[in-house]
Nucleic acid binder design. Sequence first.
RNA 1: GGGCGCGUAGCUCAAUUGGCAGAGCAAGUGACUCUUAAUCACUAGGUUGAAGGUUCGAUUCCUUCCGCGCUCACCA
Length: 501
Amino acid sequence: MSLEDELLTQRLCRAREIAALGFEPYGRRFDFTSTLAEILTGYAAKTAEELVPEIRVRVAGRLMTKRLMGKAGFAHLQQDGERLQIYVKKDAAGEREFTLFQLLDIGDIIGVEGYLFRTRTGELSVHVEKIEFLSKTLLSMPEKWHGLEDVETRYRQRYLDLIANPEVRKVFITRARIVASLRRQLEARGYIEVETPMMQPLYGGAAARPFVTHHNTLDIDLYLRIAPELYLKRLVVGGLERVYEINRNFRNEGLSTHHNPEFTMLEFYQAYTDYRGLMDLSAELLKQVAVDATGSAEVEYEGRRLDFSRLDRYTMREAVVQFWEAPDRPSLADVADPDWLRRHSGQATAGEALTDVFERSVEDKLIQPTIIYDYPVETSPLSKKKPEDPAFVERFEIYAAGMEIGNAYTELNDPQEQRRRFEMQLAMREGGNEEAHQMDEDYVRALAYGMPPAGGEGIGIDRLTMILTGSRSIRDVILFPLLRPEGPLELVNSLRQRDTL
RNA sequence: GGGCGCGUAGCUCAAUUGGCAGAGCAAGUGACUCUUAAUCACUAGGUUGAAGGUUCGAUUCCUUCCGCGCUCACCA
């Protein structure tokens, strides 16, 4: 018998012994008077004398340590990432409760009742008089000192990661704060939150390969959305002038430390503004979200300080000149010159070549939060052209820590022009570009009813969270990142064999 | 998909040039009524990711496969 099987047998027997004592191995509702966190904040500063007269409490949590010394013992309960010590003495708790305490395994969940006191070494603790058993653990917890470090196990069994590693819990709390902050800020500006289809008959709004699924009754293939953009703009046509959605996008592409097949995007659209308006809004949103998430507009990421209180702005051409590190730094005239671009990139058009040069020479140098604006028209089929230069569109991206975290533009609202852009995309598609847009005729129809001038923006929540939590990998900010499925676990078999224990 | 790296007890890690697979925690038994990485004594726990190969002998070298990580490509 393997150790794990032996342990399982032991623990199942233990559960039976607990039941024999008159406790339920899987207990019921427990009304606590305070959370552990409340007790710690409320009484951490109180001296032993100030804890008299007795302050009675009922608290619950998972047993994380246990030090048994004959007829008394100490243990720590953990709840919401906080730990509080309990002291169980046979004299005080009684024979039955003390026997239960002796039977407890690390990982069991219990509730206790008693009064607060300070131990001789000064630790705030609960002097236990009553124990209720709430849930039995059948498997062993990660090691108490090192915690759980195996990356694969941490991602596959996030529950264990959350139990063992308090900083992981903090990352996801910060993530929740980020989302809440963005919602609050947008709501304060009159935006309303909407939900648009995740399963779409046509996919669009970004350049990416989709996941395909099938609806049986309608007998149609559907795509998991790569972006909500085209639906959100239909809503702008319909008079929802400020809308946003925070939800998942799905892109059937590679995985990396910066890419998960499903990821969370905030997209928001505002009628009667343009990309300049959104630049200002972005600066406000990002500064505030950094403050709300971390307490400061300055955050440290991989040893560098990023200042979200200011967003530098460069046109794409300016950025190439500014951040060029190779010899022969180009001039602004060079990066506008099709011949120069052709010499520095294999791309077919001047616009694609500029984007290519930008991505290769600039992108990973944009450590400070920075706006790059004015993109070539070729790569931006849904944005409005610059009136003075139709080769460029009114689009910007936000970079930080060398990553793209946002993308925005003045929305193209001319249906005739949109039709031409889609047709350009179709031609690229026929030329073998799998990621080029499909024709979305209903979207053109929506524009044909008239869409107010508008600006729209997407912000990658996962990447923003990476930066604001100091996480190196996107998997560290996604609770359950996509992994290859595990092999058989054999736990169910083991349990079945012990069904009568 | 390419390149590099990793995989040893439930967890965290050792194992010399290819020479008896080990420790701490967790677990079991016993002692202990203020401990806190509790302590003390004893015990058990391994298909070294899997399958082949080389060798008298493989955790160690080789091949293939599986899983994960990093990186490049692609992408946000």
